[in-house]
């Protein structure tokens, strides 16, 4: 291949990437419009519109519930409750926030209620997981492995965090909810939410990207 043809290919590639980005942006703004329309119809009592809202948002809501609860069964219960609450409260949803953010807050609140009820049981499960971590060989993963591997380790480390730490780090650092919203949905002060967040980040850093010679705390 000549330098000129390589250059042409690069231009074609960058044009294709640009076109793809534009298409993504268009479809994103279209889907935001569609969601807003479905919300309006749902507010006027159109149950079918709400069903379609469930169809387009439930995977996202479930992903958050799964990250907050750490298991599929709890996540399903939380998501069902969250949609019921969203359905009953759709009149109270104001268009100034994104529907997804509003739904995330409801999922966070339902998850908190659900997990408080099952706290004792979950505590036992976490103790078992913690023992498993301690037996893993020492390594320095910051200097090796790819993104996919890091994501798997991170998902695992998040799942093994105590609930009170897991919820704040997921809501803040993964789903970008403000400290005030997190504190309100979890029923704690903003200061407490921040303290938990910093503790959670530290634990995750120790587990996933430990410093040389550092023993991750349980």
């Amino acid at each position: 291949m000549t330098a000129a043809s390589r250059g042409i290919l690069r231009v074609v590639d960058s044009d294709a990437a640009e076109a793809e980005r534009n298409a993504d942006a268009r479809s994103e703004s279209q889907s935001a419009k569609d969601t807003a329309q479905l919300v309006e119809l749902s507010k006027s009592g159109d149950r079918e519109a709400f069903d379609r809202l469930v169809r387009v948002t439930h995977r996202d809501a479930y992903a958050l519930a799964l990250r907050l609860t750490g298991n599929a069964e709890d996540a399903r219960d939380v998501v069902q409750d969250a949609y019921l609450r969203a359905y009953k409260g759709i009149d109270r949803f104001r268009g100034d926030a994104q529907f997804s953010t509003w739904l995330y807050r409801i999922v966070a609140n339902c998850s908190n209620t659900h997990l408080s009820r099952r706290q004792r049981q979950r505590h036992d499960t976490l103790s078992i997981h913690t023992e498993l971590i301690d037996t893993r060989p020492e390594h320095d993963p910051a200097l090796q492995g790819d993104r996919a591997e890091l994501r798997v380790r991170l998902d695992e480390a998040i799942r093994k965090l105590p609930e009170r730490l897991r919820s704040v780090v997921v809501l803040r650092d993964v789903y970008d909810l403000p400290h005030e919203a997190i504190a309100a949905e979890l029923g704690i002060s903003v200061t407490a939410a921040k303290v938990r967040l910093h503790r959670a980040r530290r634990r995750l850093r120790e587990q996933v990207l430990p410093m040389p010679g550092e023993v991750p705390r349980p």
Partner: peptide, 23 residues
């Protein structure tokens, strides 16, 4: 760590195909 955390949001999780109808 923070970059990896923010990327997690766009990572799909395995979802039971019956979930929508269950809801």
């Amino acid at each position: 760590l923070m970059q990896a955390l923010s990327r997690l949001r766009d990572t799909p999780v395995p979802t039971d195909p019956r979930l929508e109808s269950q809801i």
